[in-house]
């Protein structure tokens, strides 16, 4: 396994672990200030929305501030959708580096998230598309796109489900 492949895999695994273990500050720290976080919706059987600015998505956050709002919500314990907080297990697999261009890397992965919450257990599958950038020697996430294979979601979603 190449160094880059290993490094990218570690970063993506690390994100999953931080989410499952609720280490929100360290999780947010994986993202750059200008990081885009995008969960498209399905336009038809074949295609998701492809223009997040001009189409209706499930989640579209333009920068890390959007992720910070989510963490604020979770930690406030005033968002009843997140109290008690669902337990999650992310299983990330099929991590592949798709493109390397200087400090910029594109990678894909698959993810199954098993959630246990007030309604019991629930498993959702998604495809990950990452854009990563090496900053001061360290890889950071500049963009994460999460494509659910479900077109109709069972219940609400927040960053810890994704």
């Amino acid at each position: 396994m190449s160094d880059v492949q290993q490094e990218v895999t570690n970063l993506i695994y690390r994100e999953a672990t931080l989410l499952d273990r609720r280490e929100w500050d360290d999780w947010i720290d994986l993202y750059t200030e200008d990081a885009v976080y995008w969960v498209p919706s399905w336009a038809n059987e074949e295609e998701t929305t492809n223009d997040p600015e001009l189409q209706l998505n499930l989640i579209y956050l333009r920068n890390r501030g959007g992720l910070e709002d989510r963490v604020f919500r979770i930690e406030s314990r005033d968002s009843y959708a997140s109290v008690p907080l669902d337990r999650t297990v992310h299983l990330v697999s099929n991590v592949l580096v798709q493109k390397e261009d200087g400090d910029d890397i594109e990678a894909t992965a698959n993810c199954i998230v098993h959630t246990y919450g007030k309604k019991g257990g629930l498993t959702r599958g998604s495809l990950y598309d990452f854009n990563l950038r090496r900053i001061n020697g360290e890889l950071k996430i500049t963009r994460k796109k999460i494509t659910f294979i479900d077109d109709r979601l069972e219940g609400p979603i927040d960053v810890y489900h994704l």
């Binding site: 189409q55 209706l56 499930l58 989640i59 709002d69 968002s79 009843y80 609400p156 927040d158």
Partner: peptide, 20 residues
Amino acid sequence: LDSFLTFYGPGGLATPDDVE
């Protein structure tokens, strides 16, 4: 669309609390 997503939908900042 930003206003919509901020409040509404399964991944919004308000609808999930309504669903709950």
